Computed example of a mutant assay.
Amino acid sequence: MYKNILVCLDNSNHSNAASALAIEIARARGALLTGCHVYAAKLHNTRFIEMEDGLPQEYRQEEILRNTREVHDTLITKGLKIISDSYMSVFQAMAAGLEVKGVDREGKNFEEIVKEVSECPYDLVAMGLLGLGRTGTSSIGSVAERVVRRVRTDVLLTQEGADTGKGIMVAIDGSPASFGALLRAIELSGIFDCDIEAVSAFDPVFHQSAFRSIAGVLTEEAGKLFRFKEQEKLHDEIIDKGLAKLYMGHLETAEKVAASRGKRIKTTLLAGKASEEVIRHARKTAPFMLAAGRTGAHAVAGLDIGSNIENCLRNVRCHVLVSSTEFTPEIGHKDGSLAWTEEAKALLSRIPKFARGVVKRVIEDTAKKEGLLEVTPDLMRRVRKKLEG
């Protein structure tokens, strides 16, 4: 669990919520807290120099300008340092009895926070979703968004008033990142004494919509070359029906992972666009916190953040834990894999690459549930028949 927590301070209501949650985690786990405030004295000085041409002529003499710059530089630097120290004093008072350090940095806010994280072994960054510069149309602050995209540490983004919610909701898509988020949620549920609901969303109509779109542009000859009718039947019989079973299997795995750690959880399968359904469910159930992996099942190398968690950050009304922790459950077979006969491999190779992974998972899940050690053509036919029926 978290042992070294960085808390970003700016005295906004959202930031104060981050301080409160971080302190509660630290009290429960004996973690070290570091409060950090960034101020931009040099930026103010640069802006002051840029405005000098607009001063009245009597103030534009070089000696007067030099004196004015020195006074402004001293007042701004000292003033911002005093403000930073004041934020830290309030934070330390809130965290009385805990080990607390203070860091103030000069520079561009998000850049300095990212540098601070890269220079120290923090395992959690807590910060407000919005800052002092929020507007009526703001959904996420620029600092929060830039930080969460750049650091590879767990980030807890907090919102004012979210503490009235109930429980922790975890988004599960079968990826190691989503199961890592589940582990974090289990740990946090013990601290905040709350329940967990694991949700998983699959899209039952996407492939059908895609095929209808393709059908409108393919010539008869192209349709034969693409084997359109066979592809469409494959999706109707296996992919679309199999997706529900696949994602239900992810939830069952989540239940087992939680149970192995002494936690009973609720599971809910949602049908529709992933982020849309998670957001809708979060608004309906009003959780205290949403926990999700930084990236999802379809992430590619170098991706900073997945589109689903990005959409959730902008639209849910609760605290959000963006987890960089990864965990691959090993439930069932010790090595997590099954043998495939050569005939079964040949049948699998006939399935288009974009659908092969889903089909393979459905078949292997069935094999594991039946206690089989090998996938055979007979099993594949039985799975297909079951999906069709």
Rank of each mutant, 00 (worst) to 15 (best):
residue 125 V to N: 03
residue 127 M to C: 10
residue 129 L to R: 14
residue 131 G to N: 04
residue 132 L to C: 03
residue 132 L to S: 10
residue 135 T to P: 09
residue 138 S to Y: 11
residue 141 G to C: 08
residue 144 A to P: 12
residue 144 A to Y: 13
residue 144 A to V: 13
residue 145 E to I: 04
residue 145 E to A: 10
residue 146 R to M: 13
residue 146 R to Q: 15
residue 147 V to C: 08
residue 148 V to P: 01
residue 148 V to N: 01
residue 150 R to Q: 14
residue 151 V to A: 05
residue 153 T to W: 02
residue 155 V to T: 14
residue 158 T to H: 02
residue 158 T to L: 06
residue 159 Q to V: 06
residue 159 Q to S: 11
residue 160 E to P: 00
residue 160 E to V: 00
residue 160 E to F: 04
residue 161 G to P: 13
residue 161 G to L: 12
residue 163 D to T: 12
residue 163 D to Y: 03
residue 166 K to H: 14
residue 168 I to T: 13
residue 169 M to G: 05
residue 169 M to R: 05
residue 171 A to M: 11
residue 175 S to A: 13
residue 177 A to Q: 14
residue 178 S to I: 08
residue 179 F to P: 10
residue 179 F to M: 14
residue 182 L to P: 10
residue 182 L to W: 13
residue 186 I to Y: 07
residue 187 E to G: 05
residue 188 L to N: 04
residue 190 G to P: 00
residue 191 I to K: 00
residue 191 I to F: 02
residue 191 I to W: 01
residue 192 F to W: 11
residue 193 D to Y: 08
residue 193 D to L: 11
residue 195 D to Y: 08
residue 196 I to Q: 01
residue 197 E to I: 12
residue 197 E to A: 09
residue 199 V to K: 05
residue 199 V to P: 09
residue 201 A to E: 07
residue 201 A to K: 03
residue 201 A to G: 09
residue 204 P to D: 03
